[in-house]
Amino acid sequence: LGLPKMEVFQEYYGLPPPPGAIGPFLRLNPGDIVELTKAEAEQNWWEGRNTSTNEIGWFPCNRVKPY
């Protein structure tokens, strides 16, 4: 089972920042694999864990694709 995984195809370094105070941003590099921890199809921002860095944070969902 486990959490859904997504592959990063466009880098994200915190700009634009996540809206409001939902949480810290998650740095993404192309090729990184992100395990989704909070993701809803109608939301533009998802939370996940970058398996390369083990960091957890928020990122724009348009930077990832199904793994």
Rank of each mutant, 00 (worst) to 15 (best):
L1T: 12
G2T: 13
G2A: 05
G2Q: 10
G2M: 15
L3T: 11
P4G: 15
P4W: 13
P4H: 14
P4A: 15
P4V: 15
K5T: 11
K5W: 05
K5I: 09
K5S: 09
M6A: 05
E7R: 10
V8N: 02
V8F: 00
V8L: 00
F9V: 08
F9P: 04
Q10M: 11
E11V: 06
Y12W: 00
Y12M: 01
Y13Q: 13
Y13P: 03
Y13H: 11
G14I: 00
L15M: 12
L15E: 05
L15G: 05
P16M: 02
P16K: 02
P17D: 04
P17K: 10
P17I: 08
P18S: 04
P18C: 07
P18I: 02
P19Y: 04
P19R: 04
G20S: 08
G20Q: 13
A21P: 08
A21Y: 05
A21S: 07
A21C: 12
A21I: 05
I22A: 11
I22T: 14
I22K: 13
I22F: 13
G23K: 07
G23D: 07
P24W: 03
P24C: 12
F25K: 04
F25S: 14
L26W: 02
L26N: 00
L26E: 03
L26M: 06
R27S: 10
L28I: 15
L28V: 09
G31Y: 05
D32R: 02
D32M: 03
I33Y: 05
I33D: 04
I33V: 13
V34T: 00
E35A: 08
E35C: 08
E35K: 06
L36W: 04
L36F: 04
T37C: 08
K38S: 09
K38H: 10
A39C: 14
A39L: 09
A39H: 11
A39G: 13
A39D: 12
E40V: 10
E40F: 05
A41P: 11
A41T: 08
A41F: 15
A41G: 13
A41K: 13
E42T: 12
E42F: 08
E42M: 13
E42S: 11
Q43L: 12
Q43E: 15
Q43W: 08
N44D: 14
N44T: 14
W45D: 00
W46Y: 14
W46H: 06
W46A: 09
E47F: 10
E47H: 08
G48V: 00
R49I: 11
R49N: 08
N50I: 02
N50H: 07
N50L: 04
T51L: 14
T51M: 12
T51A: 09
T51P: 06
T51Q: 14
S52L: 09
S52I: 09
S52T: 13
N54E: 14
N54H: 09
N54L: 10
N54T: 05
E55I: 11
E55Q: 13
E55M: 14
I56S: 07
I56V: 14
W58K: 03
W58S: 04
W58L: 04
F59G: 01
P60K: 00
P60E: 03
P60F: 01
C61K: 15
C61L: 06
C61R: 12
N62E: 14
N62S: 11
N62T: 11
N62V: 06
R63G: 04
R63A: 12
V64K: 01
V64C: 12
P66W: 04
P66H: 07
P66T: 06
Y67Q: 15
Y67M: 10
